[in-house]
Amino acid sequence: MYTGGLYGLMNRFSWNTQDYFAHDRPLYICFADKSLVAKQHQVSLPVHYRGSARDESRYAYTVLANLLRYVGLVYRAQDIIVSPAGKPYHAQNDYYFSYAHSFGQIVCVIGDRPLGVDIERSRPELMAIRSKVLTKQDVAQKTPLLSAWVVKEAYSKLLGVGLGLSFSRISVEAIYQKCHCVMGYTSDYRWAVCYSGRSLPLRFVKL
């Protein structure tokens, strides 16, 4: 269990699941490089997982386990199931989580409400599909293409609709009206977290 700083002090009380929800916890987010995650003890993967050996998402569950341990919760592979649209979630909704990866960068976020996260770096194919990503409003507001992508992808994960969200039909501004969205940068990447309900702080956790 991580014991650094204020969060380390709080972790000593080993919150159970109800405590975690009862005090309006922030969202906890962890960014990690795949090479660093690979050195950690790898957790069991959920039964639905069928990724190949090169699939980076396998590392996301190790990051998830670390995040859960940080807040005093326990990761169990058997608790994770997947929706018909492919969204993994805790069977009893003891916690909500979302993860993403892009070129070796893994990000995972946990919270007490539905959420979605995405991370991406600029790629040639993004320009090629620009017309499928941006609405006229996005263009008029000069929304950066990469920003639009991560916000819309995070929102689609929040909704749990996979590729069912039509990016070219919903603007970033419209998404801001429907949920809370936090966007940020890390080295060459852009990331976004979308979540429902009232505004919450976002706490960064180091792996």
Binding site: G51, S52, G86, S102, E120, I129, L163
Partner: peptide, 15 residues
């Protein structure tokens, strides 16, 4: 499987 076996993520799938 496009995502699990071939590693095709959302952006690659749209492209």
């Amino acid at each position: 499987d496009l995502r699990g076996d071939l590693g095709i993520d959302s952006m690659a799938a749209v492209n």
